[in-house]
Design a protein around this nucleic acid. Sequence first.
DNA 1: CCTTGTGAACGACTTCACAGCC
DNA 2: GGCTGTGAAGTCGTTCACAAGG
Lengths: 248, 248
Amino acid sequence: MSESAEPSPSNGPPSARPQDRPGAKGDEARTPPKAVVSRLSLYLRELQRVLRNGDQTISSSQLGKMLGFTDAQVRKDLAYFGQFGHPGVGYRCEELVAAIRRILGTDREWVVAIVGVGNLGRALLGYRGFRPQGFRVAAAFDSDPAKVGMSFGGVAVEPISSLESTVRQHGVTLGLIATAAESAQGIADRLVAAGVVGILNFAPVTLSLPEGVALVGVDLATELEQLSFSVANRQTTARASPPMGDSR
Amino acid sequence: MSESAEPSPSNGPPSARPQDRPGAKGDEARTPPKAVVSRLSLYLRELQRVLRNGDQTISSSQLGKMLGFTDAQVRKDLAYFGQFGHPGVGYRCEELVAAIRRILGTDREWVVAIVGVGNLGRALLGYRGFRPQGFRVAAAFDSDPAKVGMSFGGVAVEPISSLESTVRQHGVTLGLIATAAESAQGIADRLVAAGVVGILNFAPVTLSLPEGVALVGVDLATELEQLSFSVANRQTTARASPPMGDSR
DNA sequence: CCTTGTGAACGACTTCACAGCC
DNA sequence: GGCTGTGAAGTCGTTCACAAGG
């Protein structure tokens, strides 16, 4: 699991923001129900697999069964963002993939930087799954002089001192923190100051970030603890990934 | 984020299982509210930090503020499992740490095996954060003959063919899958057949497991997608870690 | 006075069930 | 026939607010 806290006024006031495609006849849903977005990623992954299999369309019940959700849930989730289905037919996979990518914001490329080139940082640098989903790792930093200059996954490790300049130069918008717990907050502050707007934190600490900067945390020990609990209580299946460190 | 689906009858029937400390005057809560368990891990992590800082007690509002939760939420969460607080004082950290570990099941040692010794598998083998939380990595497997025999983090890599025998021999109960997507389901089946009761899946696929086997999934691309969405919609802070692949 | 534990109120999410369309 | 989109109903989880304890 990872973290899942929200800042103090997490669910707070509805704070309806515009931008939610105002016009249109039906005038779609408003607030993006938190859990829905998680499932969107799963739908996307499944749809891409279905496409590779050669199928052109899929129904809400088929998609739901693949992931353990009900058909109604799938339809409701998608309906929050518009009308993507075709009655009597189902959803056209390519169409839906494009729609979900647009919703998630992965229809464009995000430039990411990784801080901390230990075991985990190197694994992230070598991970092939980011690119096809719209994430390009453009830089890596480490405080160990011995690592500076080395390359992993085609990315050269730079000293932490050049974090600000490199982030600005490459237009990095997302930062992955794979440092020791003690350094994480300081690095987060520097990334934010340099213009990063989202952080994926692997360090086992709760980060404090200013409003407007998104945070997702993944704590490996925490994930195992969720497993441990599930096993100790023998629930059928645990949720896939839990929340982790939150801001504030 | 990671996965978060449940099997078909996810929330299904209450299925009150015994073992929930039946007796006692108040007769505590029954069903473990899903999200609560995630937060328990966060409370634990925070409490351990507070303890290292030298503080002996903490109030629900202090603990809540550290994580972005309300004081009521913290108290309710803990109340699901018993009465751990002391009115007028707060919670004694050591006491609460012990209680949470017991609840999560990490007051004993879990023997884990890692399958797939690529970048990610090696990172997991080298991760120092498992041991202190009650997880001991006892074995690692890879299908690449070139890797067999090598050691990472003090664990020797074995061929996949010895998976069953080694799992049984060491009494492995949890399996970490860090293979390519295509191999994951097959490995999961073999792990389960060999007696593993919980799986932490890092491969970007939805696994199907028999009832009774717990599953937690962490998909790195999926986590980044959650970030992307949050940034694109500029919510204050995203949930730390989303759900991922589910079973079924 | 401070802090917990908890019923009750509230709100969010899920499931149901059906009208409409292919 | 199969399937989507959606109001209505129901369930689950969070916040309130207060009684009781130290």
